[in-house]
C-alpha cells in the first residue's frame, strides 16, 4: 500500500515535469512563429503598393484623343467596352479596344517588374482582373511561370477599382523562390 502510494507520487512528479516542458515548448514555438510571420505581411504590402503604382501608370490609350488614360481609368473604360481614339499620339483605329491596350500594358509592366526565368527569384505570378459580384474575368489572367506547388513564399494582395456601380478587383499573386 505504501509502495503503491510512493509510485503514484513519482508518477505525479513525472507528469508535472512533462507538463512544464510542454508549456515551455509551446511558448518557445509561439515566439518563433510570431517572428517568422513578419516578412510575409511586409512583402504582401509591397505587392499592394505595386498594384497601386501600376493603377496610376499612364497608358498609350487616348479617350478622347489627347486624353491619355491611366490603368485605373482604363479598367473602367474596358468594362464599358470603350475603344481608344488614339494610341500614343497616333490613330488606333477600331482594332485597339481599351481592353486590348489594358492587357498589353499590364503584361509589359509585369514582365519588366517581376522577371521569371530559370533560377530567378520569382517562380511565377498571376495577375487577375475580375468583377467582385460574380467573379467574372474582365480580361484574360496574366500568368508567367509554372503554377505548380509554390515551395517558397506565396504572396498575394488585391485592390478594388470602381467602374460605374460595379466593383472590379485587380489581384496579384506572386510566388518567390527561397
Amino acid at each position: 500500500m505504501r509502495l503503491n502510494k510512493k509510485a503514484q507520487e513519482e508518477m505525479v512528479g513525472f507528469v508535472l515535469i512533462v507538463v512544464i516542458v510542454a508549456i515551455i515548448a509551446v511558448i518557445f514555438l509561439g515566439i518563433s512563429l510570431r517572428n517568422s510571420g513578419g516578412d510575409v505581411g511586409d512583402e504582401s504590402e509591397k505587392i499592394g503598393s505595386f498594384i497601386d503604382v501600376v493603377s496610376q501608370t499612364t497608358t498609350k490609350c487616348e479617350i478622347p484623343t489627347a486624353h491619355f488614360q491611366d490603368v485605373g481609368n482604363l479598367i473602367s473604360k474596358c468594362s464599358q467596352g470603350k475603344l481608344c481614339d488614339g494610341c500614343d499620339g497616333e490613330t488606333c483605329g477600331t482594332t485597339k479596344s481599351a481592353c486590348e491596350v489594358l492587357k498589353n500594358t499590364l503584361t509589359e509592366a509585369m514582365k519588366s517588374s517581376y522577371v521569371v526565368s530559370e533560377g530567378s527569384y520569382v517562380k511565377y505570378y498571376n495577375l487577375t482582373l475580375y468583377y467582385e459580384l460574380d467573379n467574372e474575368l474582365l480580361i484574360e489572367p496574366i500568368i508567367m511561370g509554372p503554377q505548380d506547388n509554390c515551395l517558397g513564399d506565396l504572396l498575394f494582395n488585391e485592390r478594388p477599382v470602381y467602374s460605374g456601380g460595379e466593383k472590379i478587383k485587380l489581384s496579384l499573386e506572386v510566388c518567390f523562390n527561397n
Binding site: 503604382v53 496610376q56 501608370t57 499612364t58 484623343t65 489627347a66 491619355f68 509592366a109
Partner: peptide, 12 residues
C-alpha cells in the same frame, strides 16, 4: 502637353 492638352504622365 499633347495637342494643347496638359496631362500627367506616370510611369512605373
Amino acid at each position: 502637353n499633347f495637342q494643347g492638352v496638359n496631362y500627367d504622365k506616370c510611369e512605373l
